[in-house]
């Protein structure tokens, strides 16, 4: 039975072509199911392969495993480096959580390292804007302690400002950004 004949069989008799709502919904239900069935039939399951922790391909790119840094899902990322720079990103096909796929943020996890506006050292706010004032580690801890050690500041004190991705809350009197 093809799609046309299936829809025809779900249609009202030809002497009553004013399809009522029920018949319309029945045809819509069959059309939806047919579309999904056709799509699913063409689906190819993703291959699950074991990926070694480190390997170098024929182009000289060294692939290593890493977690994606952008959200809490925990996607596994394969990072390709060449001459000390990240040149490629892949989802890890052996990972249960993402099965080789990444979202658009994950695919840019390598490019984000080289953004021209990326903070490369802690900065202290000067007036309304962040200044390029490089703050040393001991000074950071000292100033954080001055602000009472609550909330984000406590996190800053306990977890170390050198932790990748750590962000000090913007509501404090003197904001600190750490990347």
């Amino acid at each position: 039975m093809n799609l046309n004949s299936a829809i025809e069989s779900a249609s009202p008799p030809r002497n009553n072509r004013a399809a009522d709502r029920r018949q319309f919904l029945k045809q819509a239900a069959l059309a939806a199911a047919t579309g999904v069935a056709a799509r699913r039939a063409q689906a190819v399951p993703l291959p699950i392969v074991q990926s070694p922790d480190t390997e170098t391909d024929e182009a000289g790119v060294t692939w290593q495993k890493a977690p994606c840094r952008f959200c809490g899902t925990g996607c596994h990322v394969r990072v390709g480096t060449l001459d000390g720079r990240v040149v490629a990103i892949q989802g890890d096909q052996a990972a249960e959580v993402n099965k080789g796929l990444l979202c658009v943020k994950g695919y840019h996890v390598g490019a984000a390292l080289y953004g021209k506006d990326r903070l490369t050292h802690p900065m202290r706010r000067q007036g309304r804007f962040l200044g390029a004032y490089h703050v040393g580690g001991s000074h950071r801890h000292h100033r954080a302690a001055d602000h009472g050690g609550t909330g984000a500041i406590r996190h800053l004190r306990l977890r170390s400002v050198d932790h990748p991705g750590g962000i000090c809350g913007p509501k404090i009197h003197e904001g600190w950004l750490v990347q």
């Binding site: 039975m1 799609l3 299936a6 779900a10 047919t34 069935a37 063409q42």
Partner: peptide, 8 residues
């Protein structure tokens, strides 16, 4: 109402 089949 049985419709079309695609593989399985």
């Amino acid at each position: 109402t049985v419709g079309e089949s695609f593989g399985c």
